[in-house]
C-alpha cells in the first residue's frame, strides 16, 4: 500500500499517526506527493478530485478521504485497535474527526492558508478567530472524555484526528496570537495529557519538517 500526501496536511497526517499508534508505520509506503506533482495526470488517476491524501492499494485501486483511509488502516493493519468497542464511544471517536473536518478546518484553513500559502482573507480570518473555531471547539469539547486520551485511557481515531489540528493551532497562535487553548479548558486538559508523548512529538516533528519544506519551496 502507498499513502500519497504530505504531513502538513492534517488529513494525511491523521493516517500516519494512526499507523504509529498501531506500531505499524512500516506497513505502508510513503512516496510523498503524487508522481508528477499535485494535479498531475497520475494524481487525477489516483484521486479524481486531485486532493491528498489517497491510499493506493496493492490491486491499484485507490481509497480517498483521510478519515476513511484511517479507519481502513485501523482495520487492515495489525496492532492495537483505535476503534472503541462500545458503540457510543465509537460514535464519540468518529465525531471528533467529523467536527475537526466539518467545523474546525473550514475556518482553520483561512488561518493556515495565510501562514503556509500567503492567502489573504482578512474577513474570513477574523470570523475564524472570533466565531468559527470557538463555536466548533465548543461542540468538540462535549465529546472529549476525562482523559488521558480523547476516549478513556487508550489512543483512538479521535486522538489521531485531533492531534494534527494542534500543529495548525500553533501556527495560528504564532501568526495571529490566537490561543485556542486559553478559553477551552477541556481541550487544554486533553492536550496537557498527551502533548509530551512520543506519538505527539513525532507527529509535530513530521508536520514541522513538512511545513518548513513547503515554506522553502514557496520561497523559491
Amino acid at each position: 500500500m502507498k499513502l500519497y500526501g504530505s504531513s502538513v496536511s492534517p488529513f494525511y497526517e491523521r493516517c500516519l499517526i494512526a499507523l504509529e499508534m498501531k506500531n505499524a508505520l512500516d506497513a505502508v509506503q510513503y512516496p510523498g506527493f503524487p508522481p508528477g506533482g499535485m494535479k498531475s495526470d497520475a494524481h487525477f488517476k489516483g484521486h479524481p478530485y486531485g486532493k491528498i491524501p489517497y491510499l493506493e492499494l496493492d490491486d491499484d485501486t485507490c481509497l480517498i478521504e483521510g478519515q476513511v483511509i484511517m479507519e481502513y488502516l485501523d482495520g487492515v493493519v495489525g496492532g492495537p485497535t483505535l476503534t472503541p468497542a462500545d458503540p457510543y464511544d465509537r460514535a464519540r471517536a468518529s465525531l471528533i474527526g467529523r467536527i475537526v473536518d466539518t467545523y474546525i478546518f473550514p475556518h482553520q484553513g483561512k488561518l493556515s492558508g495565510n501562514v503556509i500559502f500567503g492567502y489573504q482573507d482578512p474577513e474570513g480570518e477574523q470570523n475564524a478567530i472570533e466565531k468559527g473555531i470557538p463555536d466548533a471547539i465548543k461542540a468538540l469539547e462535549r465529546y472529549i472524555g476525562d482523559g488521558p486520551n480523547v476516549i478513556g485511557d487508550s489512543w483512538s481515531t479521535g486522538d489521531a484526528a485531533l492531534i494534527p489540528y494542534m500543529f495548525h493551532a500553533q501556527l495560528a497562535k504564532d501568526a495571529f496570537g490566537f490561543d485556542v487553548l486559553a478559553d477551552h479548558k477541556v481541550l487544554a486538559a486533553w492536550w496537557g495529557n498527551v502533548q509530551d508523548t512520543a506519538i505527539v512529538q513525532n507527529c509535530m516533528a513530521r508536520m514541522q519538517k513538512s511545513f518548513e519544506y513547503l515554506q522553502a519551496a514557496m520561497a523559491d
Partner: peptide, 28 residues
C-alpha cells in the same frame, strides 16, 4: 451547539450529533 439537525437524545440525556455518526450508531 452547531444549530443543525438531526440530533439524537440518548436515554441518559446525552446527545449525538452529525447524521452520519448517528446513522452508524443506530446501525450498531
Amino acid at each position: 451547539p452547531t444549530g443543525k439537525i438531526p440530533y439524537l437524545e440518548k436515554d441518559d440525556g446525552t446527545y449525538l450529533i452529525e447524521s452520519q455518526v448517528i446513522a452508524e450508531y443506530l446501525d450498531a
